[in-house]
Design a protein around this nucleic acid. Sequence first.
RNA 1: GCCGCGUUGGUCAAGGGGUUAAGACGCCUCCCUUUCACGGAGGAAUCACGGGUUCGAAUCCCGUACGUGGUACCA
Length: 506
Amino acid sequence: MDRVRVRFAPSPTGGLHLGGVRTVLYNYLFAKHHGGDFILRIEDTDQKRFVEGAEEYIMKCLDWCGLEPDESPAKGGPYAPYRQSERKHYYYQYAQQLVDEGCAYYAFDTPEELEGMRSRFKTDSNPSPQYDHFTRMSMRNSLSLSQEEVQELLGKGTPHVIRLRMPQNTVVKLDDMIRGEVSFDTSLVDDKVLLKADGMPTYHLAVVVDDYLMKVTHAFRGEEWLPSAPVHILLWKYLGWEAEMPRWAHLPLILKPDGHGKLSKRDGERLGFPVFAMDWKDPKTGETTTGFKERGFLPEAFVNILAVLGWNDGTEQEVFTMEELIHKFSIDRVHKGGAKFDYEKAKWFNHQYIQQKSDAELAALVRPFITSHDVNPNADLLIKVVALIKERCHLLTDFWEQGNFFFVAPEHVDLSAIAGKWSPEKTAFFENWLDATDAIGEWKHDQIEAHFNEHLAQKGLKKGDVLLPLRIMLVGGKFGPGVFDIAELIGMDEMKERIRKVLTAL
RNA sequence: GCCGCGUUGGUCAAGGGGUUAAGACGCCUCCCUUUCACGGAGGAAUCACGGGUUCGAAUCCCGUACGUGGUACCA
C-alpha cells in the first residue's frame, strides 16, 4: 500500500465544534497509527459564509489538542497551496475536462429560474424537485439548448455553472470502512453543481480534485456526507482516477444529550456546557461561544473524551494517552450509530487527568483561572493549595471555587448555618483561644489542631460544637479541605482576623 | 414525500448463535470523613416491536416502528 495520507478539511465559517474535533482526531489517529501523513486543507470556497479569523482559530484549536498537521497552509508541503481558494485553476481545468467528455454540462439558469422549476414540479408526493434527468431538459443548459445558443451565451459572458450529468439507472457501490457496502441508485441523485458561477468549485468537485492531487489514501468525514458519496465516486470514475480513489469512512454523528438532532452551538448555551474546543467570537455578530479550554478542561482529557465517544478498544480501558490512542486506534472499531454527548462523563474524565498531574504542573495550569479573579498568589502557596484541593476539582475553574478562601477572606459568610445554635460560651471559647494561639509553637496543622483540642477540653466543649463554626469563619461555607490545613496556609494573623470578624457579626 | 444510515440500562458501551448480557458515567443505599468533596462497598436499571431461520436469537434474515442525515451555485 502507498504511504497512508489522510486529510482534514475544515471550512473557515466559525468555531470548531465537538464533531469537527472528533473528525480531525480520528483522521490524525489513523494517519499516525499507520505512520502516515496528516494533511490540513482549508475549504474556503464559500465566500458568503467565509469568516475572517476562523482559519487561525482552527489552527489554534488543533495546536491546543496536540493534533499538529504534517502539511498545512501555514506549514506548506509538497502539494501546496492548501487553501482551495488558491487552487481555483485546478478545479476549472477538471470541470472543463468533464464538460468536454460529456460527463458534465453548462447550466445558465438564474436563481429565479431554479426557484420557478422547483415550484412548478412541486407536489405533495415530491416536496423538493431536483435538477435531474427528469427536469434537466426543461432548463436552460448545454444539453437542452442548441450548440449555437450555448456558444452565444458563453460568448456574451452569461453567468453559468457546470453541473455533473448523473446517469440514469446506475447503481453506485461504496465500500465504507465503518459501514460495509452501501449502494445508491443514481436516478435518485440530482445533477450537482461542480463549478459555481463565481468560478469557485463546490465541495463535490474540490474534494475529489484535491484528494487526487494530494494523494490522499483514506477519506474520513461525517455521516452527513454519505448521501453525496455517489457523486464523488462517479467523479473519481469520470476523471479517470478510479484506481487511486481513497478508501472511505463515514463517521457517526454527535447528537444532542437531550431531545433530537445533531449537537449544535445553541445546545451548549441551552444546556450549560461548551460545544467548541476553544472560545470563539464571531466577528460578524460579536457573539462569543465558550470553549472547553476556557471552561477548564485539559486538552488530554478533551481528546480522550472525544476519542471514546464512538470508539473503544474492546477492553475496559477508558483513559488513554495520545500515544496509546495512536497505538490502539482502529477504524473498524468505530461505531455506526450516533452518540449523545454526556457532559457529566466529560467532567469525570477531566477529573481523572487532573489527579494525574503533578502539583507544580497543575499549579501552572490553574494559575490563569486564579489570576482572572484579580488574585496573584506566589508559586509556593498556589502549589500547596492545589495539592490540598485537587482531588475535589473536576475542572480547572473549580480551583477558584474550591480554593478562593486561601487567597482572600470569604465575601459571604454563611452565618445561618451556625447562628441558630450559637451561645455565649462559644463566643468566650473563641475569644480565649485567640488570645492563647501565640503559644502554638510551629504553625503547622497538627500543632494548631492539638492546641485547639487542648483548649476545647479545658472549656468542656465538644468538638462538634465549634469545629463547624470555625470552618464557616475561615471558609464562609460548609465545604473545603481540613480546617487546620486551611488555618496553616492562610496563616495565624489572617485566621484571627476572620474569626474576630464573624464573632463581631454574631 | 423520496433516498441513505442507524437502534444493547437515563448516557457511553462490551458481547456478533448457547453468557448469571462486561465495564464506565449518572442515580440510590451504606462506610469513611464532626463540613463538602474524593475514596471504598453494595443496589436499581438494558437487548425497539413483529414475524421467520434454528434444538437454541441480543446476535442471522424479512417487515414495522422510531431516530437521524441528505434532498442548495453550504460545507
